[in-house]
Design a protein around this nucleic acid. Structure first.
Lengths: 132, 132
DNA sequence: GCAAATTAATGATTTATTCAAG
DNA sequence: CTTGAATAAATCATTAATTTGC
């Protein structure tokens, strides 16, 4: 049985934790010397090269964006389906223009809650009138 | 005996079972309409509101992550202790002592990459000649 | 056995981050 | 650079488990 170095880097849990922590801490596209340092630090916990670090940040950033986009386009589809029962099919509607009811429907969560800084019964109001 | 509405929701065993099953099945952050459905289903087994379902998934997910993190950082500590017997702690490496090759060495990272707007094989160049 | 006291779980709230659009 | 929307993380608060002394 040869050691047969696996063809690609596999982060140890520790390395992953540190990378994720850095990511949360704001690191997105470290420059060459930052990568050098990070690599040095992480090699403490296992075999790793600079390019692994470089690629990790590239991928992590990209997949974050991707995740969000999938989420948004899923919502968009649902919304379109909803509207197709009531209206003409919508063309390329902007995400932000979701029907008011979607936000004010019975469970009205944190965003709204915080907005009005309710301390009790944050979910009671189902309709809000804004008089101008 | 007054009903003395308890100040917070307490899931019945059936409700809890269903919630946990959904979680195991992959449900993590249900949207408003999913929450409505779940709530409707669970209200069969006892009093429950949408916000309870919402909070339940928030908390369950968060505490799962928490559990995992505690486990990882425990491993991390053990490994650090292990390594401290074999290596010196890393210290702020002096930049001036790094030979130029350290910067141009095989993986030449994002800073350089971006600077020259490479689209492929960003790591090929190992030496750059600047002729004046 | 049984409550009072203490600790562990977990429901509910608040605060901080995130991405991307404007 | 700022902001809206969403959600993750941190925190507060109450209920359930449990320990303890009698």
């Amino acid at each position: 049985m040869s050691p047969a170095a696996s063809s690609r880097w596999c982060p140890t849990p520790e390395q992953l934790m540190i990378l994720e922590e850095m990511y949360r801490g704001g690191v997105r596209t470290p420059n060459a010397s930052q990568i050098q340092q990070i690599t040095a630090h992480l090699s403490f916990y296992g075999k790793i090269e600079g390019k692994n670090v470089f690629y990790w940040f590239q991928n992590h950033k990209a997949r974050d964006r991707q995740k969000l986009r999938r989420k948004l386009s899923k919502q968009l589809q649902q919304q379109q389906q909803f509207h197709q029962h009531h209206h003409q099919p919508l063309q390329q509607q902007n995400q932000r223009n979701q029907p008011l009811l979607h936000y004010l429907d019975p469970p009205v969560y944190s965003a709204f809650h915080q907005l009005f800084n309710y301390n009790t019964s944050p979910f009671l109001p189902q309709v809000i009138l804004i008089l101008i």
